[in-house]
Amino acid sequence: MDKLSQAERFCWKFIQDNFAKIPDLTITELSELANVSTATIVRTVQKQGYTGYTSFKQSISNQSHIMKPFSHLEGEPALVKEAVLKNYWEVTHTINQLNVKDALKAAEAIAKADKIYIFARGLSELLAEEVSIKLALLGKTCKKYTDPNLIRGIAQRARPEDAVLFLTLNGETKELVEAAKISKDLKSTNIVITTNRDSSIMQYRDIALIGFKSRNSFLPDYEVHSRLPLSILCRILVDILAIKIND
């Protein structure tokens, strides 16, 4: 994960403090106002998940009417605003980049599956528990596994008529990647829910739902990033499944 340098943190704080002005500023104008280089601005917004300043500015412009309810944050400390707004960005960007056809395919695969295995590690285990309960309430035979040794072994039980759901924020957890390869070789349907489209586990997916993860964390020394993007995708998936089953 890319961390902001001191100059980039200053740049991001300036952007947050002058959020409403961004749609009207060129990168050169912002550079002069913030007293940072245009290269620093580009690196800063890229580390926030954008391709560059133009895409960041366009995103702000497109959603400026949505940002009006946050006018009460003006004047608050930059870090407080960041703590609030990063949740907003994770939800809105996750929904904006959602491929609905893939969500429908995932729901269809789960609806048809004889068994559903859910594999997750770390904080994603809490989400796996929630999803397994909801799938059971919908009448699906579902089991979740979070122990690394069990995950590898259970993956070997997967069959072509089964679906395997992987909940992984970064898509690089070793035992999940290994399990995905095993179940892929056994022809089961692998459904990956992650925020990293370039992760190792993606090479073994049949269907993937990709969320947006904020790059900033107030606990940078620990892997405790919010699972909010995964939670949103799981909720959408389960709701679509419920509609399909109850239709």
Rank of each mutant, 00 (worst) to 15 (best):
I133F: 11
T189W: 00
S71F: 05
K134P: 04
L85I: 06
E178T: 15
K3N: 11
S37V: 08
F10K: 15
A120G: 06
S183N: 05
A106E: 03
D114K: 15
V84T: 11
E130R: 15
N62G: 15
P220I: 11
T168Q: 02
A128W: 00
I118L: 06
Y145N: 09
L4S: 02
S200T: 12
Q63S: 14
L233W: 06
K213V: 08
E130V: 13
S31W: 04
L30R: 03
A111W: 02
E130G: 11
Y222T: 14
L33A: 12
R215W: 08
A34E: 00
L169F: 04
S217R: 03
V224R: 07
W89V: 09
D239N: 11
K143C: 09
C142E: 00
V84R: 07
G171K: 02
L137E: 10
K112L: 10
R121C: 11
S188N: 07
L186F: 03
L135A: 03
D206W: 03
A113C: 03
F10G: 12
D102N: 15
F218W: 08
G122W: 05
K143F: 15
R9Q: 10
Q203I: 10
S61P: 00
D206M: 03
V100T: 14
K181T: 07
I22S: 10
K213E: 09
N170A: 10
D239S: 13
S71N: 14
I151M: 05
K68G: 05
V45I: 01
A158C: 03
L138E: 04
V177Q: 01
L150C: 13
L30F: 06
V84N: 05
V36L: 03
I232W: 02
R205E: 09
K181W: 07
R215P: 08
M202I: 14
K101G: 11
V80W: 09
N149T: 13
K187M: 08
K86F: 01
C142F: 00
R197A: 15
C234Y: 01
L209K: 01
A111C: 11
K105I: 06
A155Y: 01
K13Q: 14
G139F: 12
Y145W: 08
P148H: 04
L79R: 12
K101D: 14
H93Y: 12
M1K: 14
L33I: 10
K101F: 12
I243T: 13
Q46E: 09
N62K: 15
L73F: 00
E130D: 15
K112C: 07
G211D: 01
R157L: 15
G49E: 01
A208T: 04
L137R: 12
Q156C: 13
E90N: 04
N190R: 05
D239F: 08
C11P: 01
G122Y: 02
T94P: 04
K81S: 06
V45E: 02
S59H: 13
N18Y: 13
W89R: 07
S214E: 08
I27Q: 08
F56N: 01
R205C: 10
T146W: 04
D221T: 14
S64M: 11
P69M: 09
E161F: 08
K143I: 12
E108L: 10
Q46I: 07
R121G: 04
